[in-house]
Design a protein around this nucleic acid. Structure first.
Length: 365
DNA sequence: CATGCGTGGTT
DNA sequence: TAACCAAGCAT
């Protein structure tokens, strides 16, 4: 572990003041900063995981309007919660949040717990979110180390550990425990993150505008552009899929609910199958798949569109066909026929929203 | 501890 | 435009 040698002659008190004073003046007016309701802080922190502030704002406002309290979210249908999360990504966050909120309702009388061990044990609440809720909502001096904090502190303290490694977080937690203001831990943590978002940005940080420039070892050493150290990620692999938009005689569409674990868990989709190299005729493969897997007879023969969808770790290339159902379908929890009206109530991944959009556009012609 | 898990914006 | 990023967590 890094020695954090730069902490020895670090003017902690002056740093805290410069940082917090700047935050008091310059902080953005964000919807989750209107009050200190721990439930709202919690929701915002889950949504903000790996997600930009500008993206989160409308989702947060809509979500809080629909589910204003712990009880409201605990009592909602999962379908409704996923619909409110549709398009935000990382959908297990939504299911974990609802599971955790239900635990808070049952075990803690609908009050978000203040004990670290209790909040940390909730589903979807890891080390960062634990510290964020404890410090921001309850003003307790706990570190909340996210990517911003690691970037900012790696520069200020000239820490050269690779922040892509999961072991590095502890180094920064140690640094925050040493530096955090016990008078205002909430503002201290938020200020570190806000500084990372507004000034100490990943590329071309605005050092000349930085309120803590005089405390920054990275700037003094002229190495701010070389920090943080972060190893590259691997390229995504690509997967070939064939999908079918199938209608019955009433014009209803056949949809399938994805498994409750893994990629896009619990979201709805149009029936689709992976195309391995061994299949040369994708329309025949799709037709066989529908028959074998869903016991559905159909003719997905008219090419509709081709869609590329990029995830963090893989790329879907979907070739989409449309057709008609030729026999009746046995519906279930996982397989449904829905009208265009009904389909809008269900949560679909963006890739399949693109398919629906292409189908609707094509149908009108 | 490395990997799987979304999406849209920037450079 | 491909690469990189944005307030991480579960496994």
């Amino acid at each position: 572990m890094t020695s954090l040698k730069n902490l020895h002659d670090f003017d902690k008190i002056s740093f805290q003041k410069d940082l917090i004073d700047w935050f008091q003046k310059e902080q953005r007016d964000l919807p989750w900063r209107k009050d200190k309701d721990p439930y709202k802080i919690w929701v915002s922190e889950i949504m903000l995981q790996q997600t930009r502030v500008d993206t989160v704002i409308p989702y947060f406002n809509n979500f809080i309007e629909k589910f204003p309290t712990v009880d409201a979210l605990a009592e909602a249908n999962e379908e409704e919660v996923l619909k409110a999360w549709e398009g935000l990504g990382y959908y297990s966050r939504a299911r974990n949040l609802q599971e955790a909120v239900r635990e808070v309702k049952e075990k803690y009388n609908s009050q978000v717990p203040k004990k670290k061990e209790e909040i940390a044990s909730l589903k979807g609440v890891g080390p960062y979110t634990t510290g964020a809720v404890l410090s921001i909502a309850f003003n307790l001096p706990e570190p909340a180390v996210d990517g911003n904090v690691m970037r900012v502190l790696s520069r200020i303290l000239s820490i050269w550990d690779d922040i892509a490694k999961s072991s590095s977080r502890k180094i920064f937690e140690t640094a925050v425990r040493e530096l955090i203001s016990h008078e205002n831990p909430s503002f201290f943590n938020q200020a570190l993150m806000e500084l990372g978002a507004l000034v100490c940005t990943p590329t071309s940080p605005s050092c000349l505008l930085c309120p803590v420039r005089e405390h920054c070892h990275g700037f003094q050493e002229g190495v701010e552009d070389h920090l943080p150290v972060k190893t590259k990620k691997k390229k995504p692999r690509s997967i070939q899929l064939a999908a079918a938009v199938l209608t019955d005689q009433a014009g209803r569409l056949l949809i399938h609910k994805r498994p409750n674990k893994g990629l896009l868990a619990d979201l709805w989709e149009f029936p689709n199958v992976e195309l391995h190299l061994s299949f040369s005729d994708e329309k025949a493969r799709l037709k066989d798949f529908l028959k074998e897997t869903y016991h559905v007879t159909a003719n997905p023969e008219h090419f509709l569109c081709s869609i590329e969808h990029v995830f963090t770790h893989l790329i879907w290339n979907i070739r989409v066909y449309k057709g008609e159902l030729q026999t009746s379908v046995t519906e279930s929890d996982k397989l449904k026929l829905v009208t265009i009206e009904e389909i809008t109530k269900l949560a679909f991944p963006v890739s399949h929203q693109k398919i629906l959009k292409a189908f609707l556009k094509n149908s009108k012609l």
